[in-house]
Write a protein that binds this DNA or RNA. Structure first.
Lengths: 218, 218
DNA sequence: CCTCAACTGGACTAACTCGTCCAGTGTAGC
DNA sequence: GCTACACTGGACGAGTTAGTCCAGTTGAGG
């Protein structure tokens, strides 16, 4: 009683050690399986088997499937934002945006357009099913867009973008083109529509450059 | 044995009368339910109850759930294409495109952005689950894009669009913006991202107009 | 080396969902 | 009006899935 942790609200049992690793393993397995099969089509037994754990562990770390899914939403959101931060937080020029585009296209082309965006597919599947997941996903999209719009703000401040450019709207448009591109590429099993969509969005941003011809498209 | 129908491959039982109506009722119910709950989260018993029919009828008209889903893909595809044909087959000017945009935005705003596009959500849910549904959806998207690109071709032929405009790519970009807009609007429960996305795509097309300032944006 | 609690693994139950089956009904053709 | 068959409705069974429970194991602190 004396040396219990006072900071934590003493929710349930003690933290762990391997427990943390187990939880991570479960999330990682759920992430893989639910990306290719979808959330609803993946059973907890699939997750259990893929994560080399057992039922009781699953239910020790997650109250039920819904909570696992919500944890996965958070997990994927963190993964995507970390990856995107790497590619976007130093964005200062149009050519940086082109490099960012190329990286996404290349990654998607490795699957021939399959699977789409981990966040986008969850958004479609969960938005009308679990309000909490929906709002978390919506916030994650907003943060992602902010990474883009921050970069566009830097470009505008440095004089690369015209003053009448609206970084927020440009970022939303680019994100929609990305998500729509993922969707069409997934349906077609071909990365091409995603390339066309991103190029459209980049062309649109290019039209706000101070010297449009000074920057190359590839 | 003698007076059996010879033309048909004698697949199953005789056609019907109310049977056709029943089948339609089932599809219509499945369409409604699966739009808001998703395909996998909708049970056949939900469909049965909503369509005021019984199990045996369901299985009389559809071999199993997968076939019902495939029929729904076809059904929705036909609905969307019919609706879009009405709005697009006479498309001859940029302002027509703006009217088309406004109709889609208005329809979506009635749900505050919810539910998204019936084809897009099925594409996300089914593309990695049923190859036949995926390819049908992919073809439907292609037809939809063709309605758009045909209109853009007419605009180019009449001299409204510049010769260096690529109707196919513009149509793909517009479709991606639309689908991405639906997705973000659904996640945000707000039609705004869809508006921004479509406006970006329309701006992009406007940049290929011969007289960009001659046509209004609304 | 001992003790206790966190952790493990899997057997078990209840509920759900797909799909089958069959007895009864309405209707089209004769 | 009679007969045969498409159609109806719901009871039923098999298989799957979410979630529970408990006996055994591991490992850290004393």
């Amino acid at each position: 009683m004396g040396d219990e942790q006072l900071a934590a609200p003493a929710k349930q049992q003690r933290i762990s050690q391997r427990g943390v690793a187990t939880r991570e393993r479960i999330l990682e397995a759920a992430n893989r399986l639910m990306l290719v099969r979808g959330v609803n089509a993946t059973t907890l037994d699939d997750v259990r088997a893929a994560s080399q754990t057992s039922k009781s562990q699953l239910y020790r770390h997650f109250a039920d499937k819904q909570e696992l899914v919500r944890a996965l939403v958070k997990y994927r959101g963190a993964l995507v934002l970390a990856r995107e931060r790497g590619g976007l937080e130093r964005l200062r020029s149009f050519s940086g945006l082109v490099r960012w585009r190329n990286a996404l296209v290349q990654a998607n082309s490795l699957n021939n357009g399959r699977y789409g965006c981990g966040l986008g597919s969850m958004a479609v599947e969960l938005s009308d099913q679990d309000e909490q997941s929906r709002s978390m996903l919506s916030e994650t999209f907003a943060e992602w867009e902010k990474l883009i719009s921050d970069g566009l703000h830097r470009m505008r401040d440095s004089g690369a973008l015209r003053q009448d450019a609206d970084p927020e709207k440009l970022a939303t448009g680019l994100m929609a083109a990305l998500q729509g591109g993922y969707l069409l590429a997934n349906a077609a099993h071909d990365v091409a529509p995603m390339e066309v969509a991103l190029d459209m969005a980049l062309d649109h941003i290019r039209s706000f450059l101070v010297e449009p011809s000074a920057e190359s498209t590839r």
